[in-house]
Design a protein around this nucleic acid. Sequence first.
RNA 1: GGAGACGUCGCAUAGUCCGGCCGAGUGCACCACCCUGCUAAGGUGGAGUCCCCGCAAGGGGACCGAGGGUUCAAAUCCCUCCGUCUCCGCCA
Length: 421
Amino acid sequence: MIDPQLLRDNPDAIKASLRTRGADEALVDAALHADTARRDAITAFERLRSEQNVIGKDVAKASDAEKDALLATVKELSQRVKDASATVSEAEELASKALGALPNLVLEGVPAGGEENFVTLREVGSIPTFPGEPQDHLELGEKLDILDMERGAKVSGSRFYFLKGAGALMEMALMNLGMKLAVDNGFIPLIPPTLVKPEVMQGTGFLGEHAAEVYHLGEDDLYLTGTSEVALAGYHSDEIIDLTAGPLRYVGLSTCYRREAGSYGKDTRGIIRVHQFQKLEMFSYVDPADAAAEHERLVSWQEQMLQSLGLAYRVIDVAAGDLGSSAARKYDVEAWVPSQSAYRELTSTSNCTTFQSRRLNVRHRPEKGASTEPVATLNGTLATTRWLVALWETHQQPDGSVRIPEALQPYMGGLSVISAS
RNA sequence: GGAGACGUCGCAUAGUCCGGCCGAGUGCACCACCCUGCUAAGGUGGAGUCCCCGCAAGGGGACCGAGGGUUCAAAUCCCUCCGUCUCCGCCA
């Protein structure tokens, strides 16, 4: 949710932001009108309510004779208060809808335009070369017996899989490596629920543009989360947290579920796009003034991971039109996938500034005695199942085996190569 | 799954039966000041969150797990939901 004060004081700034996203500026005026209507309704209601409160006290004190006369007038007033209150509820609903339709203000410097207008910030590592055609991760996985898509489909349908043997171990190793990095940097590990209530799903914004992506359990009215960001953002909802000692950082490990509706025929081979996967997610609650710096820190931890795994990658500054509604800026780290001769997204890190925290009502007190203000939230991926794709393909050898990066070996019982047995 | 108890201002509690004098008492913790030679204690005062009006001073509204209802008026009465605890049963 955008700052309603900013909407009133500087609607043009919000319009400018909408333009860089390629979104409709008319949303701003609609929100302004709804906000004014809401405040008018509140003022009218409160005036009546105040009157009712005063007379109510008189009624309590009045003698029996006076009481009857007072009750007559006050009954009529009571009805007007009720009507005014109903008007407020309607106006508030409309206003919050209109305000909620506004995406976050994009930060200065974010490239304007759509998906293709991203800016490459840097390319790191040398793109691997192979004597012949490199095998793709599915081929490698099946030959090495570490990935079984067929049985995944048999048991659960398309886009499901079994990771097996060293494949299963490697996924866990990846998570452990990321967990170590996070904990060393002061993150608090959390293993969150992956089923959440509608309010939380709503609050984190995933029922908006991503609604079709989300699994819903009708019987229990619970949602399966597509990322632990949902639970991590909800963790401190309706709380006033203490950031005087610096950012509050959590790292969540969870299974993620995505329906992948609308992606038929896209990435159908292997485990690039699947319904269920593991993800290790960083989540920071910070003072808004520190948000941009925290964003750089998150991306640098992501890069450390990629580097220690020997992957070639580029970091892109995602264009405004391709940002989620909560993000003010987003960096994707994309690793080179040899079979596709292309960079594919492995991580994403978003600075949501105070947008998410307003909706979830997470605040902090900048200093003792000061009034509360919304915190900034940021999130970023530290590892996912998809990383296996880049790892296997990048580290494949001419004999069809796969080298295990040194960083992962301690978490795999010292294993250094995966070969067909 | 069955039976019952409970959910109040950071924590602990009073108030709910008998609706108005309760946005709400008390203790602890907290902040400021005072007092005491130190430790401990004592005294006085102050403190919640959100919203609306206002340049401000200030004024007003809402909030007693959540949402509805009854009433001129609800922490208090009624309903629904959520959560916690206890007992019984069942079982990974």
